[in-house]
């Protein structure tokens, strides 16, 4: 009971802290920026967790959808179309379409092959970004004006942008919680537990996995739309395979297969990155072993340190 409460306390304090930071840190735009980025990557990590943690689909190409979202904002801005009511639906639709194609191809394989194919497909997008000179190639595009929502929400204001991200993050967490516990969620988790059994019970498992893959892609595309807006900038690096790797780190660090885990993971990842890179430019020398220790000794990630009871994967 004590440990159960610890998790609720930590989760609630984190949410409360995120809600209050702009008020407390008024003027300290640097930290507001770090946390904005952390929340955006939390959304991306939450989406990856749906397929990685609950569905056991180890996608090593999830950054593709961040790139798609960010490039949507960038390319529209390049043509001086700033209307978010156009940009965002298009960004989400393209994410869904790409996830559908990538998923349909990669879900034909399993295990290491699945990892390699998702990696390869995303690298194709990366090289596409690098090679299209019109959209800045290696250098990417500057997003001079953020998405406009007809005067309702002004994303040019850092604090407004912060709270927009915050609200979308909360909605994503709540939606993920519903999804994971719905009939659909049970099918995805059942497939992770014993796929052969699911088929024998009569589930067309592949269709459900593909649907989960697309949902994850769309949510991550949303994170990409936010990231493009936040950074005012997009380049192919956002889709580089190391970015996909970082998203996996966040999920593993936070705790696979727990709804809130990826949020802990993403925030811890970014804070560690900031803190360690202040100490030394070779911060990854410290970060790498740290991650290994987490995998070895706290297999459920940060979430498991807060106590997860005997049920597992809930």
């Amino acid at each position: 009971m004590m440990r159960f409460n610890l998790r609720i306390v930590c989760t609630a304090s984190l949410v409360l802290a995120l809600a209050l930071f702009p008020v407390i840190l008024e003027g300290q735009s640097f930290y507001i920026g770090v946390l904005s980025r952390a929340m955006i990557l939390s959304i991306a990590a939450l989406s990856l967790n749906l397929i990685l943690g609950y569905g056991n689909m180890i996608s090593f190409g999830h950054a593709a959808y961040i790139g798609i979202g960010a490039y949507t904002v960038g390319i529209f801005a390049y043509y001086e179309i700033y209307d978010g009511f156009i940009q965002w639906p298009v960004g989400l639709a393209v994410s869904a379409a790409v996830a559908l194609i990538f998923g349909a191809i990669s879900l034909r394989t399993k295990g290491v092959y699945f990892i390699m194919i998702t990696l390869a497909l995303t690298q194709m997008l990366y090289f596409l970004g690098v090679s299209v000179d019109e959209y800045g190639a290696d250098d990417g595009l500057v997003i001079d004006i953020r998405s406009e929502f007809g005067g309702y929400v002004d994303l040019e204001n850092r604090v407004t942008l912060y709270y927009t991200i915050f609200v979308i993050l909360l909605a994503t967490i709540a939606g993920m919680h519903r999804l994971i516990n719905s009939r659909f969620g049970m099918v995805i988790r059942g497939s992770r537990s014993n796929e052969a059994r699911m088929r024998a019970l009569g589930y067309p498992v592949d269709r459900y996995k593909l649907t989960a893959f697309v949902i994850a892609g769309v949510i991550c595309g949303l994170a990409g739309l936010l990231l493009g807006n936040y950074t005012n900038f997009v380049n192919p690096d956002m889709m580089h395979w190391t970015r996909s790797g970082e998203l996996i780190f966040m999920v593993v660090l936070g705790g696979m297969g727990s709804v809130f885990g990826p949020v802990f993971g993403a925030i811890a990842f970014l804070l560690l990155e900031e803190f360690l890179s202040d100490l030394t430019v070779h911060w990854q020398i410290i970060f790498g072993p740290f991650l290994i220790l987490v995998v070895l000794f706290a297999r459920g990630g940060i979430d498991s340190l807060l106590g997860r009871g005997g049920r597992g994967h809930d």
């Binding site: 009939r183 659909f184 969620g185 049970m186 019970l201």
Partner: peptide
Amino acid sequence: DNVALAIQAHAGHSFRFWRAARSD
């Protein structure tokens, strides 16, 4: 949960994303 999953397999499609399955 094991048995409920078996029942769910034959209770129409499972593209139901919102209502909690465990309290159904």
